[in-house]
Design a protein around this nucleic acid. Structure first.
Length: 262
DNA sequence: ATGGTTGGTAGCCAA
């Protein structure tokens, strides 16, 4: 079973690219972030025509997440990250999807960017990461296969940036940000791409500005974290770098894993 | 090199 995540940076702007990517790579589950669309305007029909069931948690103008799954899911377990009733940002959706021999729970997240450091935006990012940790703690108690996928807006280690010194003032690479991400891993979650590719040079984001793509000035900030029961079934992981070279690309590229059937 | 580009929106804001 193939599970993929992609920050598409606007579903209206990326519909053609998203459909092409789905046709070419046919993931069983595809998680999108930054759809920048309200639920009613999300082009679900275009994805249903490809055989996907669709769940959306959107909002006007920015943020927004969606899950597409070829296999059925009974219901959307969670819309919006639990833990703060006053948080109006559409950044989390979670479903339980059928899997050969069982189920897998998929949490799709768009973690706050947090820039500039020292503002309420950075405080919001760190608080959001604490709430995500709480969600992971609750899910781990179930001792079931689950994955937390999406745009984490976290550069975990210096090897996850072409030029780490260029990010030292950025919210994505602050010590507090990296520590919060590490605390997620230390609960017992596996960074699946890191597990399959321990070395440097693998990136998921290249800024539109300053020729970042042409210079390979990339960072790895889109991640798939797996529970022990999911990590036990991990057979492959990868990054679909080729989409960044397309016409009208997203600044992020897809990340995926393959889980063995039971 | 304190720049540069894109998407959604109609506020320039968010990234």
């Amino acid at each position: 079973m193939k599970i993929a995540t992609w920050n598409i940076n606007g579903v209206k702007a990326r519909l053609e690219g998203a459909v092409t990517w789905l046709r070419e790579t046919s993931p069983d589950v595809a998680c999108f972030q930054e759809i920048k669309s309200v639920d009613e305007a999300f082009p679900a029909e275009a994805f249903e025509e490809l055989g996907y069931n669709v769940a959306v948690h959107g909002q006007k103008g920015f943020n927004g997440v969606a899950i597409l799954a070829k296999r059925p899911f009974d219901e959307v377990t969670v819309r919006g990250l639990p833990g703060d009733a006053n948080d109006s940002h559409a950044r989390y959706i979670e479903v339980i999807v059928a899997r050969p021999g069982g189920v897998v729970r998929v949490g799709n997240l768009y973690l706050p960017n947090g820039n500039p450091v020292g503002t309420d935006k950075f405080s919001y990012k760190l608080a959001w990461m604490q709430r995500l940790r709480k969600r992971a703690v609750d899910l781990l108690k179930l001792e079931e296969p689950f994955v937390l996928v999406g745009d984490y807006n976290v550069i975990p280690e210096p090897i996850d940036a072409k030029n780490p010194q260029a990010w030292t003032q950025d919210a994505l690479f602050q010590p507090e940000t990296r520590a919060a991400y590490r605390s997620l891993l230390n609960l017992g979650l596996t960074d699946t791409v890191r597990a399959c590719y321990p070395g440097p040079g693998l990136y998921t984001f290249w800024d539109y500005q300053a020729g970042a793509w042409q210079k390979d000035h990339g960072i790895r900030i889109d991640h798939i974290l797996a529970s022990p029961q999911a990590a036990d079934r991990l057979v492959a992981a990868g990054v679909d770098k080729f989409t960044r070279g397309w016409e009208k690309p997203s600044d992020h590229v897809p990340v995926w894993i393959e889980l063995a059937d039971d």
